[in-house]
Nucleic acid binder design. Structure first.
Lengths: 130, 130
DNA sequence: CATCTAACCGACTTATTAAGTAGGAATTAG
DNA sequence: CTAATTCCTACTTAATAAGTCGGTTAGATG
């Protein structure tokens, strides 16, 4: 159950946006609130915007906001974007007697995916996990 | 759900031992059966022996065998040895509104640990997961 | 229209971890 | 004795993660 810093930062940033009053939130504010290295955060926010999770506006009074209501954005949505798994099918082969091990991993992975796509940022904000 | 090569090798090696007829199995045989780099496997087996998962005997007719019956060795037992995370409490802090995210990770981790400590190598051998 | 703020962008560097190797020493069966 | 096989520490290399840099573009405000 390894979670990269990048992924954690992305989730925390989106949570900030979910919890903020309507209107753009500048990256700097998020960086301070969540203690995230500024330039790195830029990087991540850009990726989220390209993926359509958030929107942005440049210039003074600019910043970022959610592209959809928090109820409609799941943890899995964000994670899939930042982990960017093109060749997610990195299944090793388990020769002979070790074959059944593969089923254990897929069971675990499936549970994980299910859980993460059931939790939205509305849940996180309300601290009410389903 | 990242699983290192080392961990996979360890599990596959133990599975081989579980499935083998009584008596020592040389590392070479495991390496071939499971297609694991030989020296690397040595390394892993040594670690498993030190942890009391397996026993060994040197010299001709030497090799490795399980220290306990397959019913009594769980996947978690092996994983804990090879991942060896003493400071497993690498919990990042989730400031402010992001706090509830921590609960998600612990729920996931807990489920994972539970599952892995319910599955034994007897299950794997019989391809009958609980 | 000048200025300042803040997002945008690709490429680059550094740090950390994973993966695998090397060279021998110690045991033990035959 | 000899050959097979484990034991042990340390080392090298490969891969990935984490973070940085230098500068460009868009937009609000006076």
């Amino acid at each position: 159950m390894r979670i990269s810093a990048r992924t954690q930062y992305a989730l925390r940033a989106v949570t900030e946006l979910a919890a903020a009053p309507p209107g753009p939130v500048p990256a700097e504010k998020i960086a301070v609130a969540q203690n995230i290295p500024r330039r790195f955060l830029d990087n991540i926010l850009l990726q989220l915007r390209r993926a359509g999770i958030i929107n942005s506006q440049r210039g003074p009074e600019g910043g970022y906001w959610l592209a959809r209501p928090p109820e409609e954005i799941t943890l899995a949505d964000v994670i899939m974007v930042v982990e960017g798994n093109p060749e997610h099918s990195q299944r090793a082969d388990y020769p002979g007697v070790a074959r059944p091990l593969a089923d254990v991993w897929s069971a675990l992975r499936e549970h994980e995916e299910t859980l993460l796509s059931e939790i939205t940022f509305a849940h996180i904000m309300k601290d009410a996990l389903p």
